[in-house]
Design a protein around this nucleic acid. Sequence first.
RNA 1: GCCCUGGUGGCGGAAUUGGUAGACGCGCAGGACUUAAAAUCCUGUAUGCAGUAAUGCGUGUACGGGUUCAAUUCCCGUCUGGGGCACCA
Length: 956
Amino acid sequence: MEYAFRDIEQKWKKYWNDNKVYKVSNDSPKPKFYILDMFPYPSGAGLHVGHPLGYIASDIYARYKRLSGYNVLHPMGYDAFGLPAEQYAIETGQHPAVTTEKNIARYREQLDNIGFCFDWDREVRTSDPKYYKWTQWIFLQLFHSWYDRSENKAKNINTLIELFEKEGNKNTPSPGNADLSFDADEWEAFSEKEKRDVLMSYRLAYLSFAEVWWCEALGTVLANDEVVNGVSERGGHPVEKKRMRQWFLRITEYADRLLGGLDKLDWSEAMKEMQRNWIGKSMGAEVSFSLTPTLSEGEGDVTQIKVFTTRPDTIFGVDFMVLAPEHELVDKITTETQRQAINEYKQYVKSRSERERMTEVKQVTGCFTGAYAIHPLTEKEIPVWISEYVLAGYGTGAIMAVPSGDERDHAFAKHFNLPITNIFGDKYTGENAYSEKTGKLENSGFLNGIEIAQAIDIAIAAIVNAGKGRKKVNYKLRDAGFSRQRYWGEPFPVIYRSLTPALSKGEGDVAQESIPYTTDETIFDEYPELQKLPVELPKVDTYSPGPEGQGPLANLSNWVDTPGGKRETNTMPGYAGSSWYFLRYMDPHNDEAFADRKAIDYWSAVDIYIGGSEHAVGHLLYSRMWTKVMYDLGLIGFDEPFKKLINQGMIQGSSRFVYLNREHNTFYTFNRVNPPVGLGKIETLRADVSFVNGTELDIEAFKKWRPEYANSEFVLDTDGKYHCGVEVEKMSKSKYNVVNPDDMVNQYGADTFRMYEMFLGPVEMSKPWDTKGIEGVHRFLKKMWRLYNDEQKGWVVTDEAASEAELRILHKTIKKVGEDIERFSFNTSVSQFMIAVNELTALNCHKCEVLEKLAVLICPFAPHFAEELWHQFGHNTSVMDASFPKFEEKYVTENSKKYPVAVNGKTRAELEFALDAEQSSIEKEVLADPTIIKWMEGKAPKKVIYVKGKMINVVV
RNA sequence: GCCCUGGUGGCGGAAUUGGUAGACGCGCAGGACUUAAAAUCCUGUAUGCAGUAAUGCGUGUACGGGUUCAAUUCCCGUCUGGGGCACCA
């Protein structure tokens, strides 16, 4: 009986399905374990072999945990809202819901092929109204919440209103508007609009303004992704930034907790470091620079520019100031003579992405405003410039420039011929800024001769004393933009209620004149149909954008206009649905709540979360924030969503190339063009990997694929084959290097495919796919199969007692595989299986005592294979209900070891000693060994290093 | 540019806490079985030098330094591949 993997896999897939083997209950006496994969975006291209890598790893771990006695939650779903589906809809007119559905069906089919133990009854889709009902509901909670800094937690906005009624906002400054100040009486006197505006500056979900990429030609807002080299990806039209009213999440209020929370997480240091850098906490000072009264014309209220600096010690080195071109003071301080130049420069900056502004540091640009500021300590007049290297979103959007101490300031000063004050003495060469934080300051007034580290505090004290600033903690983290001018996303449960003419003051646009209310507010009590969730995404006829950069929903006037007012036409961004989906899996069909509290308390936080490191800061940070908000509001009992994080690497594509001399219509094999001597002009073309075996090209298949080369000559290698060139690249359709898991499963079976994906290398590492190598793993499974089944004789397992050597192999394997799974080292466990099978085959072992346990052991890796063997052993329940074999020390203990013996660190001999041997007896024997004596060359041993169980080293 | 991460045979990789570098697999070469092929099995395979050979000696973990009895592993510097940089998901 041979290893008929196709029949075996079909049979058990059906069995698992029919018997609901992977059904998970929320009610179990077993300890829980929650292992989660980052759910995929179902793209039209389907899965390639890189996608399942993490899923296979988590599947192995999930099965291992289940075999070890846990109730394991291992769900899967789809992050189904997103730009590509909408893009496709624009191009083809097909509704994103339809294409998404189709893509999901395809994904599901591909996933099913691989034999995962997902409980599909718990599947979630973010685009399903039953799901996004709760995304919208959570948005409402965010809207109705503010962050109480005194208690360090989010609370219902009503508690803030109570506070305002009692004492105004003197003890609760607004995070969104630092200048806002009112007392209880003033609050009482505010109009409804004024009150709502005040509250808006506190809410965790709030409206403000942000810049987006606007493409006039396409009449739409573009994602960063859709802007390539400063023009739109589609059509290559010019783009510029446009300020729009947008929803935001006030994640900055959580900056400190998001930072502190990292310490207790079992994530890689790299991942934590990326989040720390993203949050970007820095200590420094906020310093106010006054403008010179003579030069700042009119506009009496503009008297100060605030900067944030982490280096207040360098304050005596300030030679000029730079504002972000978007800074609100720029227009006010610019002098008439400079106005045109400034406007032109601002226009230029509008075309620049933030990335370009950060990256292209060698290209120095800027413009003088004509205004001067007064140095807060020396009262020197310093010019105020604007430049793209200062970003509006960081700090105060303005800097004090210290050219002798900061590289970019230095380059700027050199470029515009601004004077440079040296405050570092010899340390500053005049060539480069001195940006290290050691050394003594010079030319710095009262800071002269003081070490930089100490000078920081002294400088801050002096600035505070002079009333020119304060100590400040700054975060790089910015509030998260939460609006997209798109169709395929969650609609907001928000309605803008127009003001009655009596209440509305002044002009302004509609948005300014109306007040945003969420649909659940009492103001809509008379329209209960408006208050219901979900606010369903209406069907549209066209996916083209609405007027003035609004999303496509703006075109649906009968949807936008409600008896209560106009609906919000933006939709939520991709990370809305993915910020909380791990909670929904716990109780996916609940229509009364996002999940039942009992289920949440049972499953609690995700024990292991697996996904790509590209989500290091986006998704993972937003999820952490949502979790903290929900924890603060008492909705869940934990404040970190993912206890342990594993980052899987990418599987890269391995592209194949052929080499053409077009003139002679001849293709040359790789070796012939390497080097390409005397062959004329050689073009490198891609060949689809599907008709290349290793590097050998199937010439006929290639000609069929590219008929224009049907008559081409092929110059072969000495072995009579045409060999392709190889390069490792990203796996993508356009590179013709995509390998479909379906094909692999078809040819070798799911079990081989699973084991091979793991065998390729460590899960966390990126590595290229090599189809050729899969045969080795397939051979291994066949070889293991033969321990149980002979081609002629069939079942050959016997009841004979196992030998010591056989039991040692088994227990060595149990130990190694168990430990390897625990540390997510699956490639080495596959190796161990191979070693075990090689050794057992050599011993001609067919003993039940060894092989039954081995079958269970391999179940996490090759579940169909294991299930078949398990039933062959006569069991009639699933192998998933077996227990992971127990490792027993006694079978593997050895009492002696062959030690490598080195002289001066170089291994020269191998000697065997008992493990409990004393150093003195070992020394005696080692020094008596002829090889060792030879290498000691007559010198006396200085010392003999003996590391028990490891090695011996003689130092002479 | 900034942040994170990797670099070990022809290839994927192993070496878990500083202790015999190259496990396991692919590929390649040779052989067995076969009319032949497939499948299967066996042997060899980092590299240089010496030797018919067993083997011996040297070099070697991107590069250059350092710490140590001992470094793929720790430290400093350089080169280089990959990921992220706030509207791709």
